[in-house]
Amino acid sequence: MGFLSLLAAEAKSPVWGIFVPGQAGAFIAVLIFAILVYVMINRARAGQAVREIHKIAGLEALEEAVGRATEMGRPVHYTMGLPGITDPQTIASFPVLGHVAKTCARYDTRLINTVPDVVVYAINEEIIRQAYLEAGRPDAFNPDDVRFITDWQFAYVAGVLEILAAEKPAAQILFGGPFFAEAMIFIEAGALAGAIQVGGTASTSQLPFFVAGCDYALIGEEIYAASAYISKEPILTGTVVGEDFYKFLLFAVIILGTLVATFSSNNFLATFLKS
């Protein structure tokens, strides 16, 4: 029996192909998206018209928040929640941090950045240092204001609460993510400190708290458009426009899928997409 089972095991046909099984569809989806974005970038490079991004109140409010802190002579607190360098929300937050740091440097306002992740801490310090350098104020950069507290969620919360109570920032920016239970605590502690609050995340479970608690809130994909919006670079805007076209394509597939699932007994579209 042992020999027979060995033969049966050897008789199994080898698995091979171009794509990892189950990943072909995802690869094609990525490819279509990349082509769309590439076309829009090329259009922008060729000087052809690219649609503008609509006004995002939350990003416009960043300047107002820093301005308020300057007038009150109090610092700005910037947090990314519980970031990780592998999370796109964290990466989307970097240009905003750079922008805020540059604005703070220009207005001579103190920026406190608290971080619960060591890798992000190192990157944030470099971003802020460079922003102060670009603003012509390298001497104003204080490395002690970029603070790694701990990667333990509620210990980080305790650290931030102490900073909010002691430093009384006039503005708090909660941008990026992912955010979890700490978001609500930060928002309320910021409100108690009398800070104007600008929040933005794609963490859907925390979005209602941002909308309810912050003065300005950026919802979902708005945070990913931040770098294009701030820089006003047509090439970067092109990537956002490409993303919008892809979204229309997905909506078309969703509507078609709904119709097929409703009126046909054979859902060929779902079968095709799964294959």
Binding site: I91, F94, P95, L97, G98, H99, A101, K102, I123, E126, I127, R129, Q130, A131, L133, E134, S227, I230, S231, E233
Partner: peptide, 8 residues
């Protein structure tokens, strides 16, 4: 932006 500065 992750390389430092305001990203541009």
């Amino acid at each position: 932006a992750h390389l430092g500065g305001a990203g541009q």
